[in-house]
Design a protein around this nucleic acid. Structure first.
Length: 1232
RNA sequence: GGGCGUAUAGCUCAGUUGGUUAGAGCGCAGCUCUGAUAAAGCUGAGGUCCCCGGUUCGAAUCCAGGUACGCCCA
């Protein structure tokens, strides 16, 4: 017996489904069932275990779950391993905040070991959190017990043994860190963690292969650096540390070489002479005028950059007749004028008090004796000019190859590189050098700046890097050596020296936004640092592999994008001067510069000459691994590991090897490699995860196969775009627009969200919804009401139009169909296990709906293996519409009809188990449709389908003997299309009838003839015999739907309509070319009679555009145009005409139906039960209405279960008159 | 600056090999149906298919140029 179905209550239902799965171990049973079956290999991209999940994470995870569930129902064995991304700066930053540490020194004082343990702890904590959230999403994975993860988090750093139970049930007792490093191993199961020793060690395998091929090298990069903190900073940290400050900035002049004389060689300097542009008799020194806010970098100046297109003024200063070049615009440019008035963009960033307004360059020159403009030239003309640097006397400037020395540039040094270069453009096409704040000539110090370094590399000029780790000048910088770069005294020393050399033009106090250490508040500097790189000159190998992969969705052209990146990318910088991450297995002999890469811990142990005992028993992380030293076999020197940690994309890129036991169990690895599917949010991943997987796989396999297809880590990649807010804007954690997973899950429902994600085109952004930060809500969860997340963020109201639409268009109709079935089946005590009526014996509409269902199942088989869930969703939505608005609506009466027909003895052969065969067929058909639909939709909306299945099948399975039914919908096999039930003609036939009904409704609408008013006749004519047959066959249906008394076919509707003729350009165009214009104009005006034969399939010859044209039936399109007393419409070759003439008889019948409608509405208002009987009373002034009601008395009573209908003179006051045809009547009812 | 992509109704998007009257959903307006009700159906209004050339009998579609936006790169 079915349980009564009430409101859907989606969210509460999801919690009960979750409990059911957990209690009954459904997922475990599914895995056991499929074990040993054919394999389908999914590879999960690790999620950063650093924060709780938001709705943007749930899109990809829904894909992952849905495809896994689909292939599981298809019988495939799978791994179900989730991954957590654990190492890297993002974790360090959060942990530093948490601990209040801001500098390298502070971390060192805190202890690297304590710090690293804290990182592990944070990762484990959020892994537990994300596990719980994923479970709520219905994401079936081999999850660790969140409580076990939290236990490990708590115990990390302590040596006391922890009793740990793995997902597989295996137990282990060991110190927490020794368990943590083995999480996700094949014996234990559970998620993989990229901090595992297996993962780190497999990266060592990769790096060893790179080393063996000679691809690892030591290079340089310029990084934001804190001297006191002694560490480099990321872009992310810099964004947090921007502050308004003032610096002493200065204008400096660089003397141009070989341009010290302008005009002629004559001598005689007279300062007060008034030269004219044409009369330049004076030898004058020419200068580039440059400006900087970081005077300390002038020691390292190597070049000067200009903008090629900019106008530069040539200006003479009267004081010393010096000639300056700088951007023309800058002469009168009012620097920081707006900032002086309005501040720097934030309320707290006001112009600093006591700082004078800046002068224009014109003003500065005027105050120093006046100036004269001589000429204007383009920046392009200046390129190549050489000049003397301001500090060419420093040894560092003179050292060949720059400072530190670069062997590739030993033919040049700082002083020999001084020249004007093209400043170039940035990634957005904006010029690096612009007029405005500076002088349009930018001093370039490749050892001190990010862009400078890139420009330097581009122009082949050396870098001079002045700073040591502590932020002070290195040896080789004369009086500067040992001074701190950011100290104001250093700037003063620079000014002093410049003044001595006569190069200082002006000094001023300049306020600006400058990067600071977000924790200590110290100013940052840019510093050239050693970094380790992989030479990517084997990029073609990777591209070959990339081409073996299918990239979805097609419209994104992912393969092209990935190949483009591979073509353009530079060498891969794999090192990072941090604490928490992969220990790069590079050991260096400081003395000789030799380095070696260890390929495994075993190799390291064999080579270790020192420190192994200190390391053993710990994870291969800093600080423990740093103890181990090896010996350089060439020199005999000790080799020390570099302190750097690895780029975290190495961690994620090795996953196709590490998680599949590449190093430990090659056979097992081969079973699952390459993965069938990888799916991820794509915009950034082409150069992150996809890139790292492709690179690492190509290198890992280079010595094993030459076939690029065998190197590929995955066969198909499914990318999807981003989750945005309702307006298409990105959602941010910082401004409270980001929606936390629980907020959405408990307010919108997870099935709803899943359908949103799955029905979305993955190539476009998903506009999810809106978080109302000012409206806090309390979420109802099984654990009780929740007003904030576990992190203390208040829960806010979330609204989503797309979610509302999904619920309205998909979930509610599905639920209503199910509720309709179940609630009538209960009344009728329908037994789904009763003898089946053969489908062939069921009414056509039953066969139609079953056939349609097979089409949906076929879409699943066609599209799901192509990872096109959206196509299936569309098909399912269409089917649902047919099911509710055609099948169920049309068949309602079959379910209401009393179970046993009168006089059954006489019709015994028509009864089955005492049931009317037609009614039983309806029940059986709808039951089959609903159960099949449940299974077909189970991977998509696992909660709702489970609830339906439990009632439809589960209850009967246990209670009524069909015990072979699987316990859960998710243990069912995915339904395959049954060819026997698939009947395309049936589908087409019904579609035709639906089309006629639609056309009929349209005509009624146009003529303002309500459907309750019966009409006399509908005539139709069709282009094809199939259509005609369909309409005749379903004539009763059409009559009922349209409320039309008679429906009749005709060869043509010539008597009812007139025709219009239009040329078929597609056929005539190629034949008549230019004549087409005339044909188009004249054909519609021809006498219809001339063209009439076309309608019976004959050709005609007519004169058009002065030529005889032969027109075949295909050359002319005929359409219906007008009618009298009839209203006509045509579509897809079907013409229909309905009689628009009404008669008093028809009017009266229409009135009766209006009356019924009103009574039904009253019944509903009175909350009557379906079977309650009533009496009806009415009053009306209209004799026609009264006559109609009396004429149709028995019909009305039957339809409304009324015992009597009585006309009364006066209606009670409160009764509102209702429209009955053109008349009014007041109606009221009472229950008997 | 180079490369790629996009531009269609108020919004979000479809639009096959060039073909006649450019579609869907949402929103809006009106109507209808309804004993599944957190319903549904129909109709309507709403379009310079970004602009300008070209190819063609014919261009939203193909080509060239431009504009705007997005992404990628140095």
């Amino acid at each position: 017996m079915f349980q009564e179905v009430k409101d859907a209550d989606f969210v509460r239902g999801e919690h009960s489904a979750l409990k059911f799965w957990q209690d009954q171990k459904i997922f475990q049973k599914l895995r056991e069932r499929n074990a040993g079956g054919p394999r389908w290999s999914f590879l999960d991209g690790p999620i950063t275990a650093n924060n709780p999940m938001g709705v943007h994470h749930a899109w990809g995870r829904t894909y992952k779950d849905t495809y896994q569930r689909f292939f599981a129902m298809m019988g495939y064995d799978q791994r179900y391993q989730n991954g957590f991304d654990c190492q890297g700066l993002w974790v360090e930053v959060e942990v530093e905040k948490q601990l209040g540490l801001g500098t390298k020194t502070a971390v060192n004082e805190y202890g690297i070991d304590n710090f690293v343990n804290e990182c592990k702890r944070r990762v484990l904590t959020f892994a537990a959190r994300q596990t719980e959230q994923s479970v709520r999403l219905g994401y079936w994975m081999d999850w660790d017990d969140p409580d076990q993860l939290r236990l490990l988090a708590e115990k990390v750093g302590s040596d006391e043994p922890v009793n740990f139970t793995a997902p597989s049930g295996k137990q282990e007792s060991a110190p927490a860190h020794q368990i943590v490093e083995r999480l996700g191993n094949p014996e234990w199961g559970g998620s993989y963690f990229t901090f595992s020793t297996e993962n780190n060690e497999t990266i060592w395998t990769f790096l060893k292969k790179c080393f063996t091929r000679g691809k690892i090298y030591l290079g340089h990069d310029v990084m934001p650096w804190s001297g006191r903190g002694g560490s480099a900073y990321s872009q992310m940290e810099i964004a947090e540390g921007r502050k308004l400050t003032t610096h002493k900035s200065c204008f400096v002049r660089f003397p141009l070489r070989s341009r010290n004389v302008a005009g002629c060689e004559s001598e005689g300097v007279t300062g007060n002479q008034t030269p004219s542009p044409s009369d330049s008799q004076t030898p004058r020194q020419e200068y580039l005028l440059v400006w900087t806010t970081t005077p300390w970098t002038l020691t390292s100046n190597v070049a000067a950059a200009v903008n090629l297109d900019l106008d530069y003024v040539k200006l003479k200063a009267n004081r010393d007749d010096a000639v300056y070049y700088f951007a023309k615009e800058n002469l009168h440019f009012k620097r920081l004028e707006r900032e002086f008035k309005e501040g720097f963009g934030r309320p707290e960033w006001k112009w600093p008090e006591g700082t004078p307004k800046l002068k224009t360059l014109a003003q500065i020159f005027k105050e120093n004796g006046g100036f004269e403009e001589l000429d204007t030239i383009k920046g392009a003309e200046m390129v190549g000019w050489e000049y003397d640097g301001p500090f060419d006397d420093l040894p560092a400037q003179q050292q060949p190859g720059g400072f530190p020395e670069d062997e590739n540039f030993s033919d040049r040094c700082g002083t020999t590189c001084h020249r004007v270069i093209d400043g170039g453009r940035d990634s957005r096409g904006a010029a690096h050098v612009v007029a405005g704040e500076g002088t349009g000539i930018v001093h370039i110090a490749p050892g001190c700046g990010d862009i400078d370094h890139k420009m330097g590399a581009e122009h082949g000029i050396v870098a001079i890097a002045p700073l040591k780790e502590d932020g002070t000048y290195d040896e080789g910088f004369g009086d500067f050596t040992g001074r701190e770069a950011i100290s104001p005294e250093t700037a003063e020393l620079v000014f002093e020296k410049l003044k001595e050399k006569g190069l200082l033009v002006n000094v001023e106090t300049y306020p600006h936004i400058y990067p600071h250490c977000w924790r200590t508040g110290d100013e940052l500097v840019f510093r050239l640092v050693d970094e380790w790189f992989i030479n990517m000159d084997w990029r073609e190998e990777i591209k070959d592999v990339t081409r073996q992969i299918r990239w979805l969705p097609n419209s994104i052209d992912g393969q092209e994008r990935e190949c483009e990146w591979l073509s353009n990318m530079s060498d891969w910088m794999i090192s990072k001067k941090r604490f928490w991450g992969l220990a790069l297995p590079i050991w260096v002999d400081e003395e000789s510069g030799d380095f070696e890469v260890m390929g495994s811990l075993a190799e390291l142990k064999e080579r270790a000459v020192e420190g192994w005992d200190d390391f053993e028993g710990n994870t291969p992380h800093r600080p423990w691994i740093d103890h181990v030293k090896i010996r350089n076999e060439k020199t005999g020197n000790l080799m020390t590991r570099i302190e750097d940690v690895g780029n975290p994309w190495l961690d994620a890129g090795i996953v196709p090897f590490s998680t599949l036991s590449y190093n430990r169990n090659h056979d097992e690895w081969q079973k699952w490699y390459p993965a069938d599917l990888v799916t991820e949010c794509f915009p950034g991943q082409f150069r992150n995860w996809f890139y790292s997987m492709l690179s690492l796989s190509t290198m890992m396999r280079y010595d094993e196969t030459d076939d690029p297809a065998e190197k590929r880590p995955f066969k198909t990649l499914l990318g999807h775009r981003l989750v945005m807010d309702e307006k298409g804007q990105p959602m941010h954690k910082s401004d409270g627009t980001a929606i936390w997973f629980e907020e959405a899950a408990e307010q919108l429902g997870v099935d709803t969200m899943r359908w949103m994600y799955l029905a979305q085109n993955p190539a476009t952004d998903l506009r999810f919804g809106t978080r109302h930060g000012d409206e806090q809500v309390t979420l109802e969860t099984p654990d009780g009401p929740t007003a904030e997340t576990k992190e203390g963020v208040p829960c806010c109201k979330v609204t989503s139009q797309p979610a509302d639409e999904v619920r309205r268009r998909v979930l509610i109709p599905l639920w209503n169909s199910y509720a309709f079935f179940v609630n009538y089946a209960r009344l009728d005590e329908f037994n789904p296990n009763a003898q089946k009526i053969p489908v062939a014996d069921r009414p056509e509409i039953d066969r139609w709906v079953l056939s349609n269902l097979q089409s949906v199942l076929k879409v699943a088989q066609d599209e799901m293996p192509n990872f096109n869930a959206a196509a299936f969703c569309k098909a399912a939505e269409d089917f649902l519409d047919d099911l509710t608005n055609w099948y169920i609506r049309r068949n309602r009466r079959r379910f209401w009809r009393s179970r046993k027909v009168e006089g059954q003895e006489a019709r015994d052969e028509g009864l089955i188990d005492g049931w009317d065969a037609d009614k039983l067929a309806a029940y059986q058909t709808l039951y089959e449709v609903l159960v099949t639909l449940c299974k077909a939709l189970a991977p998509f909306i696992p909660f709702l389908t489970e609830r339906m299945y439990q009632n439809l099948v589960g209850a009967t399975g246990e209670g009524q003997g069909a015990s072979d039914a699987p316990q859960s919908v998710h243990l069912c096999e995915y339904p395959l299309p049954d060819q026997e039930l698939l009947d395309p003609t049936l589908n087409a036939r019904t579609a035709t009838a639906q089309l006629v009904v639609k056309l009929g409704h349209k005509l009624r609408e146009e003529k303002n003839l309500r459907v309750r008013l019966p009409l006399a006749e509908l005539q139709f004519a069709c282009a094809s015999a199939e259509q005609r047959e369909a309409i005749e066959h379903l004539g009763d249906v059409i009559r009922e739907e349209l409320n039309i008394k008679q429906i009749s076919g005709a060869d043509n509707l010539d008597d009812l309509v007139t025709y219009s003729f239009k040329p078929n350009l597609k056929t005539l165009g190629p034949r008549y070319g230019k004549l087409l214009g005339a044909i188009r104009n004249e054909l519609p005006n021809l006498d219809g009679a001339l063209l009439a034969p076309l309608r019976s399939g004959e050709s005609v010859t007519v004169t058009l555009g002065g030529e005889d044209i032969e027109l075949g039936p295909d050359d002319v399109m005929v359409s219906t145009e007008q009618a009298t007393d009839w209203s006509c419409a045509d579509e897809a070759g079907i013409q229909i005409a309905i009689s628009t003439v009404t008669t008093p008889e028809l009017e009266r019948e229409g009135m009766a139906r209006d009356f019924v409608r009103q009574v039904q509405s009253l019944r509903k208002d009175h909350d009557l039960e379906i079977q309650d009987r009533i009496t009806v009373e009415f009053s009306s002034d209209d004799p026609e209405a009264a006559a109609a009601i009396s004429e149709w008395d028995s019909y009305i009573r039957e339809e409304t279960l009324a015992d009597s209908i009585t006309r009364i003179e006066e209606a009670p006051d409160k009764v509102e008159p209702a429209a009955i045809g053109g008349a009014k009547a007041s109606i009221w009812i009472s229950r008997v």
